[in-house]
Design a protein around this nucleic acid. Sequence first.
DNA 1: AGAGCGATGGCCT
DNA 2: GGCCATCGCTCTA
Length: 201
Amino acid sequence: MSPATNIIAADFFNQSTLKIAKELLGCYLAHYHPDGITIGKIVETEAYLSNDPACHAARGKTQRNEAMFGPPGHAYIYFIYGMYFCFNVVTGPIETGEAVLIRALEPVQGMELMQQRRQNKKLAKPIQLHQLCNGPAKLVIAMGIEKYQNKSCLQTSPLQLLQKDLSTPKKIITTTRIGIEQGKALPYRFYLKDNSFISKK
DNA sequence: AGAGCGATGGCCT
DNA sequence: GGCCATCGCTCTA
């Protein structure tokens, strides 16, 4: 199964963040990198809204969250827990401060490269396919996404979002977000039903 | 198979 | 100083 090759146009990201979080399921994240091309199907997302206590942008613009207030369809990449990065798609009109966190991908192309990037040198066994991108920090490593790509345009930079296939299953599970305390009851996490590449049921 | 915890550093309730 | 949109290892079953 080969992915669609059409880049998602900028105006797609200028609508409700909750809608975008659901619509992104089944779409592809592609990285055209000197080391090779990696592509994954988006299978799990979380929405972060401007009036939402868990949202980095909820208490106003800072140097760290500035990208969230920038143009929709660009990247927001932040550093977390002293060692990891997470990748978001900025949504809504400029200065809104909303985004969709990409939490898991189903690897589609460049699995060998993903494996190399994710491989812990001390570990003898290769990482299972369904473990390569089943978490927000894991997929950033596997895709070779780096901090300097914060604020980069996802239509024109080497990091791109591609349209979904018609064959993508449409059943979506809606549930609560992972790893937060404030706003933990809000149903802002979405994943493709029966997909084995998600981070957690 | 689930709980606990250490790693590790930038950023502010 | 304490918090963090995480991960992988270890310990108890």
